[in-house]
Design a protein around this nucleic acid. Structure first.
Length: 692
DNA sequence: TATCATGGTAAGGGTAATGATAAGCC
DNA sequence: AGGCTTATCATTACCCTTACCATGAT
């Protein structure tokens, strides 16, 4: 039991356990409390959050008066895996920030979540064995690992930086210090005692990592930018004069010590620039193999001392050597193949399949293994980064996290390719693809009148099925009569027998041109009987406050179809997948749409560019992995705020046999126009409209 | 004196972004 | 041929970990 108090006031917050009190940007106080250890052992079933144990009391009953802050407490269980919970407290009378002194915080900030497993009975000695320990040696780390500690490594996430900044901000306020640089660069060790420990609260990083991060952040000689030729010249002189005294050199140049150190690493009098000569490449290969005791043709991506390699190569820096080797030479030597569009899609699919919570958790070595067109794990990682960068908002897109904040994770992934293959790849915010109680099972929620192009099977289970596209360019036809959805129930459960749902965005002109030369694919639901009944948890009571909205549950059944499946075999297998596709249309487009009542302009069609006949496609539906669903949105993706009227979505009924029959007749002709990207001929669109 | 806590430096492996250039397309 | 776009190769500023050291307190 620990006691938390606002030292300047009368309110005491008591809990049976240790708590962490933090403050968010809105000024709300966040009380974070780990569940009592005794309750949490293997308690998957014990879903009762411990918030009932919280109690607020007044420290001094007599002192209660108008100035006593009234604090409301809301307990928010965080997740099923995290036995801790979060409490948001709102004070109705203002609690000044500087009243929360550092001393108070020291008492409050005892533990945060399950990683802080050494609960101190007194509260202020132990915070985290990780964030409070200055450890850099292997023994220290092994020791902590053996005790069951885990900590984060690698690049800092935005969230971590936010926590750090908040901590620093609070520290400054508590001490009445304006600028953190005073503490970091001017104060003596003694004066800033506990500074780093205090600001490391809530961060699951070694104290040393926090220290480094803070130094860099507040060093105004860092992030100065590109070195000018004059600076380079001066740097060379200083180097001769001061050797490896980076601090002195940096001070003379107005750069940080690490900056000048790093810059010097890139400079070598004997360094060539530009294209590598054959001789240089040959030398590099020989040196790498010699130093790593490997043979030409072996794949070497780790354990290379690049400084030593560069020394031996002579004409290139360590960075140049490393880059050349990992991005080209090793791959070339070991008989690598060219990277293709299919590889790109395959990469996206495989990463999606990994279902990792953090991009840093991706094992690139494993992913690259046996993939002949991947030049190295490092290269693959940068390839992924390049793909991601092709979307405008990639910086706002967080990687899907599976367990924390369910609604904000899966639904925010957006990966757009501007190549000719996939126009986009995203899980739409509007769909609220929310994890349910069943692992791997999500609730896909749509707006109320939205008719998704789904194929209904036995009610209430709706089955997503896919026609088989022959290439990534294909759009698969799928539609669902809105009446079906609405008649069935307000909550429709859809089970999807596919590895994943990809929600794809296409521009209006893209789909128009697609339609113009498209051939329709017969809608096939031959797998409908294979699907198990949905768990009860997915029924109507899942979202009691939104029962008027159709809900579609998508249950991915991840298979082990990996590189081997996609890379070398017929591409017809490649996109036998379920996709949810949206269209990018402007508001005026929507308006026009309503006026003209021509939803068929965005019909669900299959653009078959590679399969010669419709029959062949139907046969391929036996390998349904993905389906494309097309839903219009002015944003290119459906936002929660989008109002999607039924009119703007093609109902299933318009894709019944007459149309399909019509296109079946034409398919042999159109199907021969392989790869032709755009056709001005809009006959198919007109046909669809007419049929409607 | 030995040990620990704390703060610090240097080396080097690595990432993310940009620049330069080649290749492809119209 | 020339301009434009895209892909690839090369470069570099910055990031992070590891190993090790210094110093003062206990």
């Amino acid at each position: 039991m620990s006691t938390v108090e606002e030292d300047s006031d009368t309110v005491t917050v008591e809990t049976v356990n240790s708590v962490t009190l933090t403050q968010d940007t809105d000024g709300n106080l966040i009380l974070h409390c780990p569940q009592n250890e005794a309750d949490e052992i293997d308690s998957e079933d014990s879903t009762e959050p411990p918030h009932k144990r919280l109690c607020l009391s007044s420290e001094d009953d007599q002192s209660i008066d108008d100035s006593t802050p009234c604090i409301s407490v809301v307990a928010l269980p965080l997740s099923e895996n995290d036995q801790s919970f979060e409490v948001t407290m709102t004070a109705t009378t203002e609690v000044a920030d500087d009243e929360i002194t550092e001393g108070t915080v020291t008492q409050i900030q005892i533990l945060q979540n399950e990683q802080l497993d050494e609960i101190s009975p007194l509260g202020n000695e132990e915070v985290s064995a990780v964030s409070q320990a200055w450890f850099t040696t292997k023994e220290d780390k092994d020791s902590l690992t053996n005790k069951g500690h885990k900590w984060k490594q690698g690049m800092w996430s935005k969230e971590e930086i936010d926590i750090l900044m908040n901590n620093i901000e609070r520290y400054l306020k508590a001490r009445g210090i304006k600028d953190a640089t005073e503490i970091i660069f001017e104060m003596s060790k003694d004066e800033r005692k506990d500074f780093y420990r205090t600001i490391a609260w809530g961060l699951n990083r070694p104290l040393f990592a926090v220290y480094r991060r803070v130094l860099r952040m507040y060093d105004d000689r860092n992030h100065v930018g590109k070195y000018t030729p004059e600076e380079i010249e001066k740097l060379k002189e200083l180097r001769i004069k001061h050797g490896n005294d980076w601090a002195t050199i940096g001070a003379a140049l107005g750069r940080s010590a690490s900056s000048v150190k790093d810059r010097c690493r890139l400079m070598k009098d004997t360094c060539n620039t530009g294209k590598w000569t054959e001789d240089e490449e040959k030398r590099l290969a020989e040196v790498v193999h010699e130093l790593t005791s490997t043979e030409p043709g072996d794949i070497v991506t780790q354990g290379v001392s690049w400084a030593a390699v560069a020394e031996r190569v002579g004409t290139r820096s360590e960075k140049q050597c490393r880059s050349k080797w990992l991005n080209y030479l090793n791959w070339k030597q070991s008989g690598g193949t060219e990277w293709t569009k299919e590889d790109e899609i395959n990469l996206i699919l495989r990463i999606a399949e990994l279902d990792v919570a953090d991009e840093n958790d991706i094992n690139w070595d494993l992913l690259a293994e046996g993939w002949s067109s991947v030049r190295s794990p490092q290269w693959l990682r940068s390839k992924w980064w390049t793909i991601k960068r092709q979307i405008a908002n990639h910086k706002d897109v967080s990687f899907p996290a599976s367990s924390e904040s369910p609604a904000a994770t899966v639904d925010s992934e957006t990966i757009t390719l501007n190549s000719g293959t996939l126009q986009a790849f995203e899980i739409l915010p509007s769909f609220h693809l929310q994890p349910t109680g069943t692992p791997g099972t999500y609730l896909l929620q749509t707006s109320s009148s939205q008719g998704l192009p789904l194929t209904l099977t036995a009610s209430p289970t709706v089955t997503l099925t896919a026609a088989a596209p022959a290439s990534p360019e294909q759009i698969i036809v799928h539609a669902l009569s809105p009446e079906h959805l609405l008649n069935t129930s307000d909550n429709v459960t859809v089970q999807c027998h596919t590895p994943r749902v990809i929600i794809q965005t296409v521009a209006t002109e893209d789909i128009t041109s697609s339609i113009s030369q498209a051939e329709l694919t017969v809608d096939s639901d031959i797998h409908s009987s294979d699907f198990p009944e949905p768990p009860d948890a997915l029924e109507a009571d899942t979202f009691p406050d939104e029962i008027h909205q159709p809900k579609i549950t998508v249950e991915p059944s991840f298979n082990d179809g990996h590189v081997s499946k996609f890379s070398d075999q017929n591409s017809t297998e490649l996109m036998n997948n379920v996709m949810v596709r949206t269209e990018e249309i402007s508001d005026s487009d929507l308006k026009q749409e309503e006026e003209s009542s021509s939803p068929l302009a965005r019909a669900y069609v299959t653009e078959d560019l590679e399969s010669p006949t419709i029959e062949e496609q139907v046969d391929q539906t036996t390998i349904d992995d993905e389906t494309i669903l097309i839903v219009p949105s002015p944003h290119g993706f459906i936002q929660a705020s989008d109002v999607i009227d039924t009119e703007s979505v093609l109902p299933l009924t318009t894709l019944t046999d007459p149309i399909l029959q019509h296109h079946r007749e034409e398919s042999n002709i159109i199907g021969s126009s392989l790869g032709s990207p755009v056709s001005e001929d809009s006959k198919d669109v007109e046909d669809l409209v007419n049929c409607h």
